[in-house]
């Protein structure tokens, strides 16, 4: 059990990093990775939402959708509604605790709702038949992987500002190419855990 949990977390942080190898959560990855401070804050907010969503998705799937046979019709609708309410909750908490952080997040905090990493992780749970502990591990691993990718990217982009980038590649283009190189580095982790 402990070994499996380890594989799930290491798998989703390094081997199949949710951002660099599964391509989930690209919007904030491109949008909020300009400054390290904001990137880490965004990563932590997303990790929190992800873990909560994993728990909610597990209970919703196994105690509401599956027993009543609603799974094929209401899965997408009910998951997105749960995620939207959780994000609203996080937004209210952040605004109360740290207005500065709230302002720094800007539009991207409400956008966690439409961050496909959250919905993606929620959908992966019933797909893999994870139990509660494994679901939490997946949510946490996805969040840490997302934070890691964002933090690395923001560090590179801060240096990139001083680089002499060809005019046409400025903006998103050079960020994509950098992400490609970063993704190539993460491919080095392949084989670290057995596939599955």
């Amino acid at each position: 059990m402990a070994k499996e949990l380890f594989f799930i977390i290491v798998g989703s942080v390094f081997v199949n990093n949710f951002v660099l190898s599964r391509f989930l959560g690209q919007c904030p990855f491109l949008g909020v990775s300009g400054k390290t401070e904001t990137a880490v804050g965004m990563g932590m907010a997303t990790t929190f939402v992800l873990t909560m969503t994993a728990v909610a998705a597990y209970f919703l799937q196994n105690y509401v959708l599956a027993p009543f046979g609603l799974e094929p019709f209401l899965q997408i609708v009910s998951f997105i509604l749960v995620i939207a309410s959780l994000v609203q909750l996080v937004e209210m908490v952040v605004l109360k605790i740290s207005p500065a952080l709230y302002n720094a997040f800007g539009i991207f905090l409400p956008l966690i709702t439409t961050n496909c990493i959250v919905m993606g992780a929620a959908l992966l749970i019933p797909m893999n038949n994870y139990n509660l502990i494994k679901s939490i591990a997946l949510g946490l691993g996805a969040g840490i992987g997302f934070t890691l990718a964002l933090a690395l990217m923001s560090g590179i982009r801060e240096d990139l500002e001083f680089a002499d980038v060809p005019e046409a590649l400025r903006g998103p283009a050079i960020v994509f190419i950098t992400a490609g190189l970063l993704s190539m580095i993460f491919m080095g982790f392949t084989g670290l855990v057995p596939l599955g």
């Binding site: 994509f176 190419i177 490609g180 190189l181 491919m187």
Partner: peptide, 10 residues
């Protein structure tokens, strides 16, 4: 995965 990012960037 790296190919996706690089092709997209170019």
């Amino acid at each position: 995965p790296p190919g996706a990012f690089i092709v997209m960037g170019i």
